[in-house]
Write a protein that binds this DNA or RNA. Sequence first.
RNA 1: GAACAUGUAGCCAAAUUGGUAAGGCAGAAGUCUGCAAAACUUCUAACUGCGGGUUCGAAUCCCGCCAUGUUCUCCA
Length: 503
Amino acid sequence: MSLYEQYPLSVYNSLTKKKEKFVPITPGRVGMYVCGPTVYSDVHLGNVRTFTTFDGFFRYFRYMGYKVRYVRNITDVGHLVGDADEGEDKIAKKARLDALEPMEVVQKYTNGFHDVMKIFNALSPSIEPTATGHIVEQIEAIKTIIDNGYAYEKAGSVYFNVRKYNEDFKYGELSGRNVDDMLSNTRALAGQDQKNDPLDFALWKKAESGHLMHWPSPWSEGFPGWHLECSAMSTKYLGQTFDIHGGGMDLKFPHHEAEIAQNKGCNHEGGARYWVHGNMLTVNGRKMAKSEGNGFTPEELITGNHKLLERGYSPMTVRFFMLQSHYASTLDFSNAALQAAEKGNKKLMASLALIEKLAAPGTGAVNAEKSAELKTSIEDALRNLSDDFNTAKALASLFEVGTKINTWYQNPAELAVIDPEVFAFAIQHFKGIISEVLGLVPEDADSTDSSLLDGTLNVLIELRNQAKFSKNYALSDKIRDDLKNIGVQLKDEKGGATSYTID
RNA sequence: GAACAUGUAGCCAAAUUGGUAAGGCAGAAGUCUGCAAAACUUCUAACUGCGGGUUCGAAUCCCGCCAUGUUCUCCA
């Protein structure tokens, strides 16, 4: 029996606004599409949070025994600056400003995006399709939508007819907007705009002269509308109807609403059955934005090189910090909160490392009650993950297990009464959840010179022990204090051995 | 102006198919230690933004207000 059958997943579905049992279309398999970044500038921390969230979903599904196809796109065309209809393509604009080929811009920031994802230990998706690589599919989708009567051409551009669509389907079902009101409140435009209706959105835009990115189509030399790529690529790789669609809360309207309309405009049904939205990031209670001057980059967060940061925080500290809140809640960055997360993460990882040093369980008479308690803790962690991916709650259970591990290390008699089978089960999932689901890994100092460093430290530890033995505490404390000042913490263990940790 | 969220101890944050409030950090005491560090044990701390209502019972549902966030619209 697989883990997902033992601990079935419930997920909050933005479409129905309810927490629902997750039942995949094909038993044992999950198809998940997540809106990826637009690669025209460096990734920001909000991206990191969203993709960390869905990395967690991906990892969770795999751990629970599902086969997963995780598709996360790269938007490398068609995302307009400013007004949805009149702005310039973000990537084309950046390319023009820097006198680069658009694809140079795309490559540069795609690489940067991958680097950052790697630093935060996010796995690569199964497929990472690009919009420019799927122009053909997008053109085909537009043709179908026109044939179905939900789009019209105007001067080489094609627009989605929201009013017509809303007669047959319901536009606004995801974002909860009353589109009937929005439609009846808007009058026909006075000719400046090509669109018949302000709510209509572009499926294909004719390229102005000088526009850098354009492709031939039945309607004009131009480029696809921003929303279309996700419909085309999710359908191509996951099918007309698929399991999960994820993205940031800010994409709900109009992007995801348009996606649903395009899918149904094409296939009369379809799109994702479960919509999952991650929430936003704030800094000291304010939204992270350029205008607020509080938008530090992932690099600045790690190095601490920003006026709002007292110091740097490691990628795993940040990851732990994000996991300590629920993905659907806003998360507030502050120095105090990050420092708390740093300590918490360290504590958990220390317990994890201690497992190797534990004595054998169950060498004495097994205490059924204590064994059951252990089992409950680890099962709670699994249940909590299955409860709408509640990593915060799961971590609480993991801390309970961590405390037990620490106790067993100090007092092996406590471990002697634990049922070995329960112990093995608990340890397996304690390790598994932390490293495989949550993606938290130990952050050692560079391992390049580790043997040299280890040897050097052992010499110092030996010298200090000699000083201690001769009760020269002034010297022994000086060695310890000086090492602490450069980031090495010595710990005198119970048996007389001395260990060290490096910050 | 509107839609949708959110508002829980000093800080972060979980619990939202209603049944008297997880966890992490910080704080206090104790155990261990030559002293520390770490760990362990115990303790401290929340009338769940404000005001009403429904209910035997509400953080959880309803109404009003305030604040914050996301998005949209209008105006410039």
